[in-house]
């Protein structure tokens, strides 16, 4: 079983297309929609966690590619800038998944991008603009 978090970017012409339906039905993937943004005639974006066999996952990505859906890795979406961070830890109480946590020894912030679901709860909590979201 493979698990992968990705961001799908839909060009305007694909917004009417039932892409997630195809991922479930044709490639037997479990699709967990973590976030979605649809602006008709402009763009559509979706953060998905996909679970399924590696072979199906590969085929699904091939389908997405052919359909014209751009697939990005999730890590690029939320940027944590350690240069700007003062390690106050205010953000950690807002992070629902533990992507932002405090190292008990150093009392410094640790950001694990693979746990981030792009909920953006941390952004207003940071007084130093150390977290940016590109979604």
């Amino acid at each position: 079983m493979a698990i992968k978090k990705v961001v799908l970017n839909f060009p305007p012409r694909l917004i009417q297309e039932p892409v997630t339906y195809h991922l479930v039905r044709d490639y037997d993937l479990q699709v967990n929609i973590m976030r979605a943004l649809v602006r008709p005639r402009e763009k559509g974006r979706m953060v998905l966690e996909l679970t399924g066999s590696q072979a199906n996952m590969d085929k699904a990505f091939e389908y997405l590619d052919q359909a014209g859906v751009q697939v990005d890795a999730l890590v690029q979406e939320l940027r944590y800038n350690p240069e700007l961070c003062v390690h106050c830890t205010a953000c950690t109480a807002f992070c629902p998944t533990g992507a932002l946590s405090v190292d008990a020894e150093t009392r410094k912030i640790v950001f694990d991008a693979s746990q981030c679901i792009l909920c953006e709860s941390c952004i207003p909590a940071c007084a130093y603009q150390a977290i940016e979201c590109q979604f």
Binding site: V86, H87, C88, A90, A93, F94, T106, K108
Partner: peptide
């Protein structure tokens, strides 16, 4: 209840 701090213990150190 989850806690968050406004004072940086790391910088205080």
């Amino acid at each position: 209840v989850s806690t968050g701090c406004l004072t940086s213990r790391a910088k205080a150190r």
